[in-house]
Design a protein around this nucleic acid. Sequence first.
DNA 1: TATTTAGATGAAGAAAGCTTCAGGTTTGGA
DNA 2: TCCAAACCTGAAGCTTTCTTCATCTAAATA
Lengths: 209, 209
Amino acid sequence: MSKTALQTFEPRKTPVQARSAASVQAILQATVQVLLQEGKVKLTTTRVAQRAGVSVGTLYQYFPNKSALLQALLKAHLDGVADAMEKACAAAHGASLATMAELLTSAFVDAKFHDIEASVALYAVSDDVEGQRIARQMRVRASKAMTALFKSAYTGGIAEPTRVAETLLSAMAGVSRGMLESGVKPGTMAAMRRELTVLARSYLCASAE
Amino acid sequence: MSKTALQTFEPRKTPVQARSAASVQAILQATVQVLLQEGKVKLTTTRVAQRAGVSVGTLYQYFPNKSALLQALLKAHLDGVADAMEKACAAAHGASLATMAELLTSAFVDAKFHDIEASVALYAVSDDVEGQRIARQMRVRASKAMTALFKSAYTGGIAEPTRVAETLLSAMAGVSRGMLESGVKPGTMAAMRRELTVLARSYLCASAE
DNA sequence: TATTTAGATGAAGAAAGCTTCAGGTTTGGA
DNA sequence: TCCAAACCTGAAGCTTTCTTCATCTAAATA
């Protein structure tokens, strides 16, 4: 086994006492804060530790390296989104396309805007090579579930369910991103939700044979 | 004036001989290549210069710093997209919503996929703080033009042209990104073009009063 | 209470990158 | 041909960051 190629990203130690669990939480939150306020280029392990109120050594006790810290954060976030989408697909099984559109957009928006700060901050992380891999996994999970859902459609089936699923998912992701990156205002958010529903519904219905 | 705050991003020197113009071109292309093959974290000025076949010193003769190099690349790319969108809006003025949908998606896809390598590579750049600023400027230009276009719609006007413009633009961006980041295959591209047109047309028509 | 285990600390080693600049080469005009 | 301007070079200074580890403190356990 090559020495350099093998790089573990597993946590070095799992917290067993309450004290250390708090440290880990503080570190994760601090990472989001630093990402938002300083940007990814200025994110250093020392700075994160400082803001979390712990020492660098503590950080390295739970995360083997800086990259693992960022990946853990991104994975947790995207897993949440994928979970939400799968749940929504299960709930919408057999419904009409219009209902599917509503449930899917609701689930996506809720999941993505649940922790707005993290969502915004993590865009900076998702473009690293490893970040892209994680994002892709999430897309695969979601679009698989959506494809299966479309096949179960109550009225007029969709000719190319996979393609439609991927397109719709990307579109929702794009619209959310556009909004998150240009600053979310409470009022605008409700409007976006509506637009996204309109978009999803009209696209799905247009895709039905 | 603060010493640190003032940072110029203007080129240090403008090429006047053919030799230097070639160097600049080589550097820009090399940047894309390094970005694609090594990723942004491993992109160093030395590596870029090496791949371009020049020395670091030469690089710094035309770009005041690493950030300026990346920004120049991103700006050129996004300016191209914004130009294309404005042109398409001018061409579609007064047409039907369906025609608008087709012209807008065509323009966007053509511009974005004109230089696929650069498009893919530059996603990694667009998430830096300065990159986001540049991306925002492009979005503003495009959505302004689109808003004006929608107001000129031949049949049934759109109630909230600005919101619809921003939503559609983000959706197109999202779908393109999804495709570019998961690897473009020639066949799939034509399909995506169709899906995007369907999406745009159905969304625009659904948004008409 | 004594002992062991978990957790925390932060100075410092090591590595890497950005940027400069003094000096060399090429080009184009006079 | 000769000179000035444009262009190129790359070793090295300076800074920054990651990561380790010997040492200390707190908690749990017997």
